[in-house]
Design a protein around this nucleic acid. Structure first.
Lengths: 155, 155
DNA sequence: CACCCTCTGACCATCTTTGACTTTTGTTTT
DNA sequence: AAAACAAAAGTCAAAGATGGTCAGAGGGTG
C-alpha cells in the first residue's frame, strides 16, 4: 500500500467488517501507536475517508475514557438514501470532483447505479469535461445530481 | 532506438505485457530516475503514446503515495460512427434538446446506449435540468456529449 | 531552411504527514 | 465544591511528497 492513510483506512474498514456490529470504537492514541504515526493522522484519515456521503457517521468523546466511534450508516429504504444524499448536496456549497465521486460510489454500493453508470456520470461531471469556472461547475453538478436522484426515486 | 521517449514507451509497454494485468502503476519519479530524464518527460511519453485512441487509459494521483496508472483498453468497433457524431457536435452551434435527443437515439439504435442510458442522459441535458441561458446550455451539452463519446469509444 | 517532434525546467495543484496549540472531560487535591 | 491536574481528542497551518502544465529551447529530417 502506498501511504499510511490508506493502510489505516483499510485497517479500520476491516475491523468494522469483522466486528459485524454497525459501529466500532477506537482509541485514537492506540491506532496511532499501532501504525507509528502522530495521533492527528487518525483525524486526517477519518475526515477524508469516513465522511457522511460515503456512509459513515463518526462520534467521539475527549478526556478520560475518550474514544472515536465509527458507524456505518445502514439505510433500508432507497428513499432514505436519496433524501440524505440530497441533503448533503444542499449542505455543500462546493461540489468538488471528490464529493461527486463519493456520492456516485455510494449510489453504486447501495445498488442504485451500475459501475458503468458511475464511470459515465463521473466523467460527465469532471472538472475536465465541464470546464468553466468552479462556481458554474458546482451549479451544474448540483442540478444534474438532483435530477439524477429524482429519476432514481421513481423506480 | 533514437530517442528516450521511444525507449520509455517500449519499456512501459513491456511491463504492461509482462504484468499480465490490464493495468500497471508506476511512480513518475522512479521512471524518470531509471531513464535519467526529467519527470515531465514521462508526461510527454504518456500524452503522446498512451492516448485513448491508441487504446490506453491513464489515471493518476498526486501527493504522498501518488502514482500513474496505465490501463490497456479495447477500442470499440464503431469508431466511425463516434467520429461522425463528434463532427456533428462541432458543426452545430445550437445544441438544442431536439438535437441531443436525436444523437442519443442514434447511439441507442447502434446498440451503444441502453434505453435507460438515453432517458437518464436526456434528462440530465434537458433545458429544465441545466437551467442557465441557452449559450451555456449548448456549451455544457457539447462538452458532456463529447465526454460521453470518448467513454463509448472503448470497453 | 522549415517543420515537427523531443526535451527541459520553472511554476502549479493536490494529497499526506507532522507538530504545536486548543478544547473537553474525568480525577485528585485543597 | 473549587481548583488543579491529567488524559484524551480536535484544529490548523506548515512542510513534504508527488504528479501536471506549459512555453521555449534543442534536434533531426524532408
Amino acid at each position: 500500500m502506498r501511504n499510511i492513510s490508506d493502510v489505516i483506512e483499510q485497517y479500520l474498514k476491516q475491523v468494522l467488517k469483522e466486528s459485524q456490529a454497525e459501529a466500532i470504537e477506537i482509541k485514537r492514541q492506540d491506532i496511532a501507536k499501532r501504525f507509528e504515526c502522530v495521533p492527528s493522522q487518525i483525524n486526517y484519515v477519518i475526515n477524508t475517508r469516513f465522511t457522511v456521503e460515503k456512509g459513515y457517521l463518526v462520534e467521539s468523546k475527549r478526556g478520560g475514557g475518550g474514544y472515536i466511534r465509527i458507524r456505518r450508516v445502514i439505510l433500508h429504504e432507497k428513499q432514505d438514501l436519496l433524501t440524505s444524499l440530497m441533503d448533503i448536496l444542499q449542505d455543500h456549497p462546493r461540489l468538488t470532483e471528490q464529493l461527486v465521486e463519493n456520492i456516485l460510489i455510494r449510489l453504486f454500493e447501495e445498488g442504485m447505479l451500475s459501475e458503468r453508470d458511475v464511470r459515465l456520470l463521473y466523467h460527465l461531471l469532471s472538472d475536465e469535461t465541464l470546464g468553466l469556472n468552479a462556481d458554474d461547475r458546482y451549479l451544474i453538478r448540483r442540478q444534474q445530481l438532483l435530477a439524477l436522484m429524482k429519476l432514481l426515486s421513481y423506480h
